[in-house]
Design a protein around this nucleic acid. Structure first.
Lengths: 341, 341
DNA sequence: CTGGCGAGGTGTAACGTTAAACCCTGCCGC
DNA sequence: GCGGCAGGGTTTAACGTTACACCTCGCCAG
């Protein structure tokens, strides 16, 4: 029925009566092509509807014009907002963003991180929650990588970290200043010496309570598995219904905090009158839920700007000394916490 | 300082004392390789940390093992939920999903759709809001495409459409049944004979009102530009503050409906007592906002299942007759509309 | 008039795989 | 005793670009 072949450069060359190299030169805006020739080639390109084969170009040049962003889940808002920001920031530079989901499990994350996959990009922004220090240290590739994230990472990587401890501390201090005395940290964990997001934010919570002379009660550390809204909602509702005394909740993410607000409603508590709630991430939606969610803003734009700067640096100079940036955090007050008296 | 080259198949071949083809055969699990040879090759692969160059493979075979999903925006929840669902559904088949953002503008969408880009995937799921019939018709490629979406599409494409008209009608009927008489359609538009999402859903709204003997009031069609929560919120708040009489709002998406609820609060109206609200998409978060958002569920899982089925069909048989699926819709009632009396 | 240079252009050899054809060796059936 | 075949492997030629070296003018300076 049909022909298999798509049109390629040699077809254009033949039709235009020039060599393949000349076509290539025209298409890539290289010098040493006469004006007339250039025009003729472009006409033929148009006529034949020729489009370059990016795979072949990539094989030959090693460059792809594409940056990869690898996130645990597409459907966690934090990551989708991040992806949109990065994509928008990359577009003016002529770079294309593609996003992959690693799945948050160590196994799927490692597979997304096989050298094979990484090599497909000029650079990679990696938001790796499932991998530990050792996994990361095992990755050996020439592809520039910037780690976006939470955990302690091998020194040789460029990285952007959120101010997790500082942010959680800020949030908890805010709750305490507004009168909360029994502040739960939903999604946190303290048991392990890990440096992941859940632990770091719980650490900030504990620090703030310590500083305020309120001993952190282990019963108020409520771990979660999936970090989903639904899970958070069920967990807090269950605890409260079971008699846990709480007058403040720090959700380790905004989604968790939104789940917490729903769960507290389920349990007959009102926000912020009975229980005040603070989240972390300052998602777009957090301003629009009811009540508005007080949240820690991790400085999204600054993070993205830093990330791309570090990526560019590596693109220009493979040997660039790794840089570790910690983003500034700020508290955004909304209706889920009370006004000062 | 370092060597440029990464290790490649010929290095493995040399070290294992076999031909390159044998290495290729081992790595691809092809027959006609002795057991010992296989083991030796695998050992060497491990030792050298060899990983295949996917670009070269792709150039040679034309297959990529990757499916592309092109969405207008990463940070519209509907699309990120879609991406997650598709990714999860593809993983068991050994296919990888990468997501690209087209930017919702016609220009950026066309660039994402250049043949060059499309050719990088074995198949493409295209959620194209910015393109019209003619744009789509202009795309000529052998890559299997499934259109996910709203609009009228050229017949030669396989497509999955939401039941936009039916869903919006269902939602509006529900509002009317619960006593609403002045139902606005936020984000809708009726001016044009387009078949895009905003128009189709407004059409369903108009149909329902007509059927109920309530003439659709043009003042109640409130168009939006960006379909963002913030814009929706501001738009409804402004109208209501300006004296527009409304006792029901159909948000053409859940995000818009969530914005509407916030805007109504801003304007001193309570939901659902003063104004009832229904959304469309049944996002995960819609169950967790306050009050819970009544919404049209477009049958996400069925849509994804259909989409992948159509894609597989095309992968197996390029000439497969195009199929057009319209998804079933269902209303999910929550607290943003009233209980029946 | 010679040498040099810049503009315009071409030919060839990769980039790292894999499809396809081919080549051995040993063994089995008749 | 030989044809045939299966098993285990190799060789060669792509896939569609681009880097690089090279070639040929025409023209200008000396």
């Amino acid at each position: 029925m049909g022909k298999k072949r798509t049109t390629q450069m040699s077809d254009v060359a033949r039709a235009a009566g020039v060599s393949v190299m000349t076509v290539s030169n025209v298409l890539n805006g290289r010098p040493n092509v006469g004006a007339e020739t250039r025009i003729r080639v472009l006409e033929v390109v148009d006529e034949l509807g020729y489009e370059i084969n990016l795979t072949a170009r990539r094989l030959r040049t090693g460059r792809t014009g594409t940056v990869g962003l690898i996130v645990p889940r597409f459907d966690h808002q934090y990551y989708s907002e991040l992806a949109a920001r990065v994509s928008d920031a990359l577009a003016p530079e002529g770079l294309h963003l593609v996003v992959e989901q690693s799945g948050a499990t160590r196994e799927r994350e490692l597979s997304a991180l096989s050298l094979a996959r990484l090599q497909q990009y000029d650079g990679v922004l990696l938001s790796a929650v499932g991998l530990d220090f050792a996994d990361l240290d095992r990755i050996r590739t020439d592809v520039p990588i910037v780690l976006l994230g939470e955990q302690e990472v091998p020194d040789r990587y460029h990285s952007i970290k959120m101010g997790n401890v500082a942010g959680a501390r800020l949030a908890t201090e805010h709750l305490v200043a507004r009168g909360a005395r029994r502040v739960a940290v939903l999604g946190g964990r303290l048991d392990t010496p890990h440096h992941d997001m859940a632990s770091s934010r719980a650490q900030g919570w504990a620090d703030a309570l310590d500083a305020a002379g309120l001993a952190p009660d282990p019963a108020l550390v409520i771990p979660l598995e999936s970090f989903s809204i639904a899970e958070a909602r069920a967990a807090i509702a269950e605890r409260v219904a079971g008699g846990l005394a709480v007058d403040g909740v720090l959700g380790v993410t905004d989604e968790i905090a939104i789940g917490a607000m729903a769960g507290l409603r389920d349990a007959g508590r009102s926000v912020p009158d009975d229980v005040q709630v603070v989240g972390f991430d300052n998602l777009r939606i957090s301003d629009h839920v009811s009540p508005g969610l007080t949240s820690v803003d991790p400085g999204h734009d600054a993070m993205v700007a830093h990330a791309l700067r570090l990526l560019r640096r590596q693109l220009e100079d493979r040997g660039a000394a790794p840089e570790h940036v910690v983003s500034d955090v700020a508290l955004v007050e909304r209706g889920s916490t009370r006004r000062p008296k």
